[in-house]
Simulated scan of single mutants.
Amino acid sequence: MEDYAKELEASFRSIKEGDIITGTVIAVNEEGAILDLQYYAQGVIKAEDMSSDPNFNILEDVKTGDTIEATVVKTDDGEGNILLSKKEAVQVLAWDILKGYMDEKKSIQVKISEIVKAGAVAFVEGIRGFIPASQLSLTYVEDLEPWLGKQLEVRVITVDQEKNKLVLSAKAIEKEKAEAEINHKISMLAPGTILEGTVESLMPYGAFISLPEGLSGLVHISQISQRRIKKPSEVLNTGDKVKVKVLNTNDGKISLSMKAVEENTEADEMEAHQAEEYSSKEEATTSLGDLFKKLKL
């Protein structure tokens, strides 16, 4: 009954040149692939009509059971089969898919197939994509040759079908990962923590301090010194080693205070001094008491 239903359905189908149809791969060889189209005739895609990617290998990249969308080139190839082209279908369908990738900010794996002036080339959904050298990594890339054949996680950042322009970026993903790591480290900082850092830059409103774990925080000018200053350079120089106290970590930013460290130090010194005085008085009192105990009246 199932076979009869399929035949009945096929009898009502009409396939014409230019249609994009879907089929299941039932055989693959070096020359091409044969597809079951749920139709009276089978579909045939020649190897050269599969992909524009120079790294494409039909025996490795196409498997029995794969579902493929392809454009009808001829309804009869001379042997009763329907001649198809996946490359043509890609040109129609891929741009919408790529636009979706860009809108979703989807991360995709690609392999760099070519090094060109100012960047690299990788294919996505059968479309040639360009990765500018500035978008290969967070760090500056001077020599592009070692990147040939490298697998990269990228994001689609430009899709322009009219200009046949597809631009990819690995840097965008690396930047997000780095920001997430920094935000995690910041979230682990408890207010009140005392850290040692280095003055990395001075601004009219305060000083930026380089901290351990690749973090950076700001000491507002009002938190630099206990005495009133007009500008940070009155008491600080770039490269100075300083101790700072974490005030808060709101909105992924670290607010620091040098003044609070000074206040803590003074309070600790005063407490230690008072404890020492108390200890000395107690010792003196005890010694005097001992003397009276030894007196015989």
Rank of each mutant, 00 (worst) to 15 (best):
M1S: 15
M1R: 12
D3W: 03
A5N: 11
K6Q: 12
E7Y: 11
L8D: 10
E9A: 15
E9V: 13
A10D: 07
R13M: 04
K16E: 14
K16F: 03
E17G: 11
D19C: 06
I21H: 01
T22E: 15
G23P: 05
G23K: 03
T24V: 14
N29P: 05
G32I: 00
A33N: 05
L35R: 07
Y39K: 09
A41H: 15
E48Q: 04
E48Y: 02
S52V: 04
P54A: 07
F56D: 03
N57R: 10
I58T: 00
D61C: 04
V62L: 08
T64E: 15
I68E: 06
E69N: 13
E69D: 14
G78R: 00
G80Q: 05
K86C: 03
E88I: 05
A89P: 09
Q91P: 06
L93D: 04
W95S: 04
I97W: 09
L98A: 09
K99Y: 10
M102C: 10
K106R: 15
V110R: 07
I112K: 05
I115F: 03
K117D: 13
G119S: 08
G119A: 09
V121C: 09
F123N: 12
F123E: 12
E125H: 10
E125M: 06
G129F: 02
F130I: 12
F130C: 09
I131D: 10
A133Y: 01
Y140A: 11
V141G: 12
E145I: 05
E145T: 10
P146Y: 02
L148C: 08
G149P: 13
K150H: 06
Q151Y: 09
L152W: 01
V154E: 00
R155A: 14
V156Y: 03
T158E: 13
V159P: 07
V159A: 11
K163C: 06
L166Q: 08
L168T: 01
A170R: 13
A170P: 01
K171C: 11
A172Y: 07
K175S: 13
E176Q: 06
E176G: 08
K177A: 07
A178D: 14
E181Y: 00
M188G: 08
L189W: 03
A190I: 15
A190V: 15
G192N: 00
G192H: 00
G197C: 07
T198C: 10
T198S: 13
V199F: 03
G206D: 10
I209F: 02
E213F: 07
I221R: 13
Q223F: 01
K230Q: 14
K231P: 08
E234S: 12
V235N: 12
G239L: 02
V246I: 10
N248A: 08
T249W: 02
K253D: 07
K253S: 06
K253R: 04
I254R: 02
L256W: 03
S257T: 04
M258R: 11
K259R: 15
A260M: 08
V261E: 10
T265I: 11
T265M: 10
T265V: 10
E266M: 08
A267R: 12
E269Y: 11
M270F: 13
E271T: 12
E271I: 09
Q274T: 08
A275I: 04
Y278P: 06
K281C: 09
T286A: 08
S287C: 00
L288I: 06
G289L: 13
L291M: 14
K294S: 15
